[in-house]
């Protein structure tokens, strides 16, 4: 019997407050989409618990928003670029399913639980190359039912952003902790007892990395 490791959970995710609110007004998040609940490593079986516990909090907040008649302001201008992309016709990206496969292989090989600065640089190069091959518009036309090639193109666009986040944060963290094992920095470094947050700059399209403290028992007692 062939046995192989697979990625089945993602510990990074959207930053929310204790009411599950994101940085986007009116948008709540819960479960695996959210980062931080599991620390440096998730215990098997905790994903459902997490989804239930934080899903309840998000549901309560959603109900409270409705009770307060709190309608998030929708700015059609902010959606222009995304709507244009959804309606775009006939990009000439090569087989998007093959590009998704190439990204998955590159991340499994270079950015798995065991990584080094060199391997993460190889992952970064693969991401850049795939971004170049993705092109500016999805293949096909809008409106065709279950158009997997077109869906793959949109998926890949987001997967490349997530992969970039993973590699950027892993490259910066020069220590080993939980599911992040840097073979070039095998020890856990107390100075790295902190969270990294990534922000996408809407103008430049660049990721900005920042650090924030972890609420430890000592900090809570102080």
């Amino acid at each position: 019997m062939e046995v192989a490791p697979i990625a089945h959970y993602h510990m990074g995710g959207i930053r929310v407050d204790t009411r599950m609110r994101t940085g986007v007004p009116g948008l709540l998040a819960a479960g695996e989409a959210v980062g931080g609940a599991n620390g440096a490593n998730r215990l098997s079986g905790n994903a459902i618990t997490e989804a239930f516990a934080f899903g309840r909090a998000a549901g309560r907040e959603a109900a409270a928003m409705v009770a307060r008649r709190e309608a998030p302001a929708f700015d059609p201008a902010a959606a222009t670029a995304a709507l244009a992309l959804v309606g775009a016709i006939g990009g000439d990206a090569p087989n998007p399913a093959a590009l998704v496969d190439a990204l998955q292989r590159a991340m499994a090989e270079h950015a798995g639980p065991f990584r080094t600065a060199d391997s993460l640089l190889r992952a970064r190069a693969a991401i850049a190359a795939l971004r170049g091959r993705l092109g500016a518009a999805p293949p096909g036309v809008p409106g065709l039912g279950h158009d997997l090639a077109r869906l793959d193109w949109f998926d890949l666009r987001q997967m490349l952003l997530v992969a970039d986040c993973v590699v950027t944060a892993a490259f910066a963290r020069q220590e080993s902790r939980g599911a992040h094992q840097r073979e070039d920095f095998p020890q856990t470094d107390p100075a790295w007892t902190l969270n990294q947050a990534l922000t996408l700059d809407p103008v430049s399209g660049q990721l900005r990395l920042s650090r924030q403290p972890v609420a430890t028992d000592a900090a809570a007692a102080a």
Partner: peptide
Amino acid sequence: RRLRIAQDPSLAF
């Protein structure tokens, strides 16, 4: 899935 990757990404399932 291998067919979509290697031969025809338009195959729908």
